[in-house]
Design a binder for these strands. Sequence first.
DNA 1: CAGTATCCGCGGAGATACTG
DNA 2: CAGTATCTCCGCGGATACTG
Lengths: 118, 118
Amino acid sequence: MAERYRCPVELTVDLLGGKWRTVILAYLKEGVHRYGELRRRLPGVSEKMLTQRLRELEADGLVARHDHHTVPPHVEYRLTDEGRSLAPVLQALYDWGTERAARSGTPIDDPVPRPDLR
Amino acid sequence: MAERYRCPVELTVDLLGGKWRTVILAYLKEGVHRYGELRRRLPGVSEKMLTQRLRELEADGLVARHDHHTVPPHVEYRLTDEGRSLAPVLQALYDWGTERAARSGTPIDDPVPRPDLR
DNA sequence: CAGTATCCGCGGAGATACTG
DNA sequence: CAGTATCTCCGCGGATACTG
């Protein structure tokens, strides 16, 4: 996210690479989420990493942050239009990953559980 | 490439992430290439990195290595069927990256120049 | 030609403690 | 609740030199 690219593919992978980015985007694709919700749904993520990734996704224009400025704090994250435009890409990655997992016998722990919208 | 995945998307990104993987695949999509050709076409890649990435892609079953066992050495790399099955994914990444580059004004140095097949 | 071998630095990532 | 602030470790990735 800083240098020059020789191929558009590099740019996309750069934006989606790393350990948590795509999973966060997958969750936000389902709807608006608060910081604490995301943290609970990403087992193993540290607060530092989650905050860092969210800030990066925000800087990249893929995620929008809404601070309600209340006490106690209430901050929501959602996809921007740009973030939503990634849907076909995420879908292609999802489909190929699913087939690959089946072919190779790699287990997938939990296929992106939905947030329970109540 | 070692742990468990919570989403098929993670698996795919894990396989395609990193600095050189997708570019190597993009070149091999055009046809068979020798080690030296690839090295010349990836400005800035070190021999260690190129070898390492090729070995990983081979271990992942995306690339096949053919050693002609001659002196001087002659080694060729090509996509496997599995590697070719990535075409739609690479295309989706390519398309989105192209649009994103246009929207954001990010320059793309050289949109994956073809190997000159003479 | 197609690689190994080795050394090294930077930044990603985790753990822990603290705050408006 | 939603974060900062540090400290630290580890491994990717680059540079350089050597080889069958």
